[in-house]
Amino acid sequence: MTDDAYLFLLDDAAVRLGVPPAAVGDLACMETPAVRAWLDAQGTTATAPELRLLPPEETGAVPGGAERLPVPLSDEELGRVRARTGPEAIARVEEQLLSYRDITDGRDELIGRALAAGVAPHRIVELTGEDPATVTAAAGG
């Protein structure tokens, strides 16, 4: 384990490893000449989707061939990074997914009430983000 966090570049921005530095807020290290030079040398920016940051205890997860740079973080900055990458962050998202399931359990009934009240199907689609076919099915046709 190292005392430094790591900035690194992923080959595939769709991979969910680490956290984009921009999502953590202002980080003093991002303004240092070393980080600026490294970003320039990589041909990327501080807001590039493939740029990621991991706290010291997770740097072993950085892919072997990935371009990487150790960066020091303050205790407060490190806390923000950990909040976005740790098991707590995953638990929060899973909790949100469960609450979404609870909301969708009564979806058809709500759509039916909206239709009965005279809300146009296209407006229901706009408001809920539901697929038009789902609204049509809830309308009974």
Rank of each mutant, 00 (worst) to 15 (best):
M1N: 12
M1C: 11
T2V: 13
D4R: 08
D4K: 09
A5K: 03
Y6T: 06
Y6P: 01
L7R: 03
F8V: 03
D11M: 09
A13V: 03
L17T: 04
G18M: 03
V19D: 01
P20W: 01
P20E: 10
P21W: 03
A22F: 10
A23N: 10
V24G: 00
V24D: 02
V24Y: 01
D26E: 14
L27S: 03
L27T: 07
P33S: 15
P33H: 12
P33W: 13
A34T: 14
A34E: 15
L39H: 05
Q42S: 08
Q42V: 10
T44A: 06
T45C: 11
A46C: 08
A46I: 04
T47Q: 10
P49M: 07
E50D: 13
E50Y: 06
L51G: 00
L53W: 04
L54E: 01
P55Y: 04
P55C: 06
P56Q: 05
E58L: 15
E58V: 07
E58C: 03
T59A: 06
T59P: 08
T59G: 07
G60D: 12
V62W: 09
P63C: 04
G64V: 12
A66G: 10
L69D: 04
P70F: 07
P72T: 14
P72Q: 12
P72G: 13
L73V: 04
S74M: 06
D75Y: 11
E77V: 06
L78Q: 10
G79K: 01
R80M: 07
V81E: 00
V81M: 05
R82S: 04
A83K: 03
G86P: 02
E88A: 14
A89L: 10
I90G: 07
Q96L: 15
L97V: 15
L97P: 11
S99V: 13
S99F: 14
R101C: 11
R101F: 13
I103K: 13
I103H: 07
T104I: 14
D105R: 15
D105K: 14
D105G: 03
R107F: 06
E109Y: 05
L110S: 09
L110T: 08
I111D: 00
I111K: 01
G112D: 04
G112F: 06
R113P: 00
A114N: 09
A114F: 10
A114T: 03
A116H: 09
A117W: 01
G118T: 11
V119E: 02
V119M: 11
V119C: 03
A120L: 13
P121A: 09
H122Q: 13
H122S: 15
R123P: 00
I124Q: 00
E126L: 11
E126A: 14
E126G: 02
L127Q: 09
T128V: 07
T128F: 01
D131G: 02
D131A: 09
D131I: 10
A133M: 11
T136A: 14
A137P: 01
A137H: 09
A138G: 02
A139Y: 02
A139H: 04
G140R: 07
G141A: 10
